[in-house]
Design a protein around this nucleic acid. Structure first.
Length: 431
DNA sequence: CCTGACTCC
DNA sequence: CATGGGAGTCAGG
């Protein structure tokens, strides 16, 4: 019965890929073995303390109600804050706040976080709406939804990992999505306190440090980038030094923050316009930063140009392990689509290679757990992070095993580094 | 069923 | 001309 189910899953999830990729080593060594790993992860699930979530939800209720009252009082009327249309009317037509750009086709003014953040400096209501939105999102999407998805039979949440949705080769997770549990804001992050280990077990969180930038270093062989990772430098500091020198007049924190935006942006094919927007600086200044970046990291520039030449010739790009991403947009007559194709061509080998690597590590870890008879198990994957529920007597062995299999999954020209954390909850494990 | 808003890497 | 990659969920319309 189990075999029938696995076979069905294999066909459903992989059949389209087999057509696209032929029967390559990628399928033989990664995707097919991964089918059983994911099936085990889904079957095991993750323990969630629903009482904790319900308590947080009740607390949020009163905060949300209070925010609502203040917003209505400033607005001078009650309306549906969740309706972009009604909100737009209240902010920009009734209260006459400085008007934002109009949105796509609905025709009303945009009320997105970017717009509201700018207004929040001068108008209390904008900040209140941002706070309201954060709380409502956390309550609806996580605090109230997750408890309903606990399987009464196991007392745990069983997500579905999809092996063929993301065109770069990443996994995706749904029902619920366990790959977008909040972490950035402290309030959101505290939701992770409810993701707990069962008695006698602990949560072990293992995440790759800067894996995409390391992959870019490997693919491009850029000497500066490679050297920085080999010496274990703080890569954003290094970029800050390279791009801004020490004559920028900005604080170290500020140049590092900007360098971080540039480092990530480069991998997404960002433009001077995009950089100026996210750093809130002049476009020409943004262009100078990008020029300076490519002067210092000329290996990255050359790799990008070589990648674009490849995609224009063959219509697809490949990851380190041979995963293909077709990019038909590159031949479009539409400028927008073509530019989109270029950005995709730059990003796909990086994101896709990182996906290859963590998938290989998952297969290796799963195999060793089985062969060596551990009771610990893989329970989640979040793109560059693996989460395990580890039997307390196996803790030290698993720390060593997981680090080794992740760091030695492949030999790149730069080291792969893994950060490990242990705790009784996912929150604690990532402290 | 789409859009715009939010969440994550 | 428009302008940073990949996802999922929710509410509103």
């Amino acid at each position: 019965m189990e075999d029938v189910w696995l076979t069905a899953r294999l066909l459903n999830t992989l059949a389209p890929k087999i057509k696209e990729q032929q029967l390559s080593d990628l399928l033989r060594t990664i995707e097919i073995p991964l089918v059983t790993v994911l099936a085990d992860m889904e079957r095991c699930g993750v323990r969630v303390d629903t009482e904790q979530l319900e308590k947080m939800s009740l607390e949020l209720d009163s905060h949300i109600a209070a925010l609502e009252r203040r917003i209505f009082s400033i607005a001078g009327e009650e309306f549906n804050i969740n309706s972009p249309r009604q909100l737009s009317f209240v902010l920009f037509e009734k209260l006459n706040l400085p008007t934002s750009r109009k949105t796509g086709k609905a025709g009303h003014y945009a009320t997105g976080v970017e717009v509201l953040e700018d207004l929040a400096f001068s108008y209390e209501i904008a900040q209140l709406i941002l706070d309201y939105r954060e709380l409502v999102k956390l309550k609806n999407t996580y605090l109230d939804a997750l408890p309903r998805l606990v399987d009464p039979a196991t007392g745990r949440i069983h997500t579905t990992y999809n092996q063929m949705v993301a065109s770069t080769g990443r996994l995706s997770s749904s029902n619920p999505n366990l790959q977008n549990i909040p972490i950035r804001s402290e309030l959101g992050r505290s939701i992770r306190r409810a993701f707990v280990a069962e008695p006698g077990f602990s949560i072990l969180a293992a995440d790759y440090s800067q894996i995409e930038l390391r992959v870019m270093a490997h693919l491009s062989r850029d000497p500066v980038l490679v050297e920085a990772f080999q010496k274990g430098e703080d890569i954003h500091e290094r970029t800050a030094r390279e791009v801004f020198g020490d004559k920028s007049g900005l604080s170290r924190e500020e140049t590092r923050r900007r360098a971080k935006v540039i480092n990530f942006g480069i991998m997404y094919g960002l433009s001077a316009f995009g950089l100026s927007k996210s750093l809130k600086i002049d476009r020409h200044e943004a262009q100078q930063f990008i020029d300076e970046y490519f002067k210092r990291y000329s290996g990255v520039r050359d790799w990008i140009n070589a990648t674009l030449a490849v995609v224009e010739r063959q219509g697809y790009v490949t990851t380190m392990m041979g995963r293909r991403r077709p990019i038909p947009e590159i031949r479009s007559k539409n400028w927008n689509l073509r530019e989109f194709g270029k950005r995709t061509a730059i990003n796909a080998p990086i994101q896709g290679t990182a996906a290859d690597l963590i998938k290989m590590a998952m297969v290796a870890i799963h195999r060793r757990i089985e062969e060596e008879g551990f009771r610990s198990r893989l329970i989640m994957q979040v793109h560059d992070e693996l989460v395990l529920e580890v039997s307390d007597d196996e803790l030290e062995a698993m720390r060593t095993l997981v680090r080794k299999e992740m760091e030695e999954v492949a030999e790149l020209v730069v080291p792969l580094e893994v950060d490990l954390g242990v705790g009784k909850s996912w929150y604690e494990a990532k402290g």
